[in-house]
Amino acid sequence: KTEWPELVGKSVEEAKKVILQDKPEAQIIVLPVGTIVTMEYRIDRVRLFVDKLDNIAQVPRVG
């Protein structure tokens, strides 16, 4: 699995749990929505963009 659209609106902790069940090797990085990030693709990275309430604001994707 490479993306988790069902996690939008969920808490960071809930999202981490689901992603690590699907992809145990994932390196999860939590960032505020709108953060500028590098464009290199990494198969072991999932970025979680969160709103001010620490809920997932964008679809988490591998990369």
Results as ranks from 00 to 15, higher is better:
I43W: 13
Q21K: 12
L48V: 08
Q58G: 07
P5Y: 00
K17M: 10
V62R: 03
V59R: 03
Y41A: 14
T2A: 07
E14D: 13
L7P: 00
G34A: 06
R42V: 14
T35H: 09
R45G: 13
V33E: 12
T2Y: 10
A15G: 10
E13P: 10
V46K: 02
V59K: 05
F49N: 02
E6S: 05
K16L: 04
K23P: 01
V59P: 08
V8D: 02
D54K: 12
L31N: 09
A15C: 02
Q21V: 09
V18Y: 09
G9D: 02
L31S: 13
G34Q: 07
A26W: 04
G34C: 05
K23Q: 12
W4D: 02
V18K: 11
V18G: 06
P5S: 03
I29D: 13
V33D: 04
A57S: 10
M39P: 15
T35N: 10
V8S: 02
V30G: 03
I43V: 13
V33Q: 10
G34S: 11
W4H: 00
F49A: 04
V8K: 03
T38Y: 06
P60L: 00
D51V: 02
D54E: 11
R42H: 13
R42N: 10
K10M: 13
L20V: 08
A26D: 01
P60E: 04
V30Q: 04
M39R: 13
K1S: 06
L31Q: 13
I19H: 00
K16S: 07
Q27R: 12
P24K: 06
E14I: 12
T35C: 09
D44F: 04
A57N: 05
K1V: 07
K10T: 10
D22M: 05
Q58T: 11
I29L: 12
N55P: 02
E13Y: 09
E6A: 05
V12A: 10
Q27C: 11
Y41L: 11
L53Q: 15
A26Y: 06
I43L: 13
T35A: 13
R61S: 12
Q58N: 10
P24L: 01
E25Q: 11
L20T: 10
V62Q: 07
